[in-house]
């Protein structure tokens, strides 16, 4: 049986879809068999982040309603042999699926795949309940902002009341320069407040924008900051003990002098 991971956050725009795409692709790069599910019905997005938007024939709702077989709806990524996407329906709403059906779908996929990764919609309504229903493990994405951390706290509470305890945290879009200046909450501040296990930290990285433009997840890049951070998370999820990457800000002598003169 494979693992079913749900990527959730409460707040929108913190990087759930980017995280789902990169973890999925990251697992596939190590040879694991992965199914990505876009559970954001009505606001399909994971397909464009993955660069698979032109290959959609059937979607999640078609599978649930029996319009096609599961195998027909799964899009195989031609670049990575073991990576598949089950896209969300674009013309339906979240009520087209219920938690029981999602649970069944996840169980069926977990028989065939090493990892099933669900991209959860923002919010705490039906779409959220659908997305978490079949998950065996929850990963919460937040950014170092008051609003995002607050929503993450709410989500942790809701997951617990649904019997999904011990979610893991990814802190996204950390800016080491601002942390150093004391103008951004750091890893310890956030862990202190949310009191859950840290899975990884993704530094702010312009390459994410470029990779999303191209429809190639950043994790495929050999050396970008975000790519390394995502690869590390994948290794941790596979049971390896990987230390957090250094967020050390290198200040050159020149910038020090400039700073000094600006006093």
């Amino acid at each position: 049986m494979g693992e079913v991971l749900v990527i959730t956050s409460g707040k929108g725009g913190v990087g759930k879809t980017t995280t789902a795409a990169n973890l999925g692709t990251g697992f596939a790069l190590t040879g694991k068999k992965v199914a990505l599910i876009d559970a954001d019905i009505g606001l399909r997005n994971l397909d464009v982040v993955m660069g698979l938007e032109n290959r959609i024939v059937y979607d999640l709702v078609d599978v649930v309603e029996g319009n096609c077989r599961l195998k027909q709806a799964l899009i195989r990524d031609k670049r990575y042999e073991t990576l598949y996407l089950l896209p969300a329906a674009q013309t339906r709403d979240k009520n087209a699926v219920n938690p029981e059906q999602m649970k069944k779908l996840c169980e069926e996929l977990a028989r065939d795949f090493d990892y099933v990764i669900i991209d959860c919609p923002a919010g705490i309504e039906q779409g959220f309940r659908n997305a978490i229903a079949g998950a065996t493990e929850a990963i919460i994405v937040t950014t170092p902002e008051v609003s995002a951390v607050r929503d993450a706290d709410r989500i942790i509470g809701l997951l617990e009341s649904e019997g999904k305890s011990n979610p893991k945290l990814i802190i996204n879009r950390i800016r080491p320069h601002m942390v150093k200046k004391g103008d951004m909450m750091d890893i310890d501040d956030i862990i202190d407040i949310l009191a859950i296990d840290l899975l990884g930290v993704i530094p702010e990285d312009e390459y994410i924008v470029i990779s999303t433009n191209r429809g190639e997840p950043a994790v495929t890049h050999p050396s970008s900051l975000a790519s390394t951070a995502y690869k590390n998370i994948v290794r941790r999820l596979c049971g390896e003990n990987v230390p957090l990457m250094s967020m050390e800000v290198r200040t050159s002598f020149l910038s020090k002098v400039k700073k000094f003169l600006k006093l």
Partner: peptide, 25 residues
Amino acid sequence: LFGKESSGSKNIAKERLRLVLVHDR
């Protein structure tokens, strides 16, 4: 002295978050 006290706005963020969560929870 030069009136450039480091803003340290993260402390403001932390305190606001603490209060908000006290009420949320």
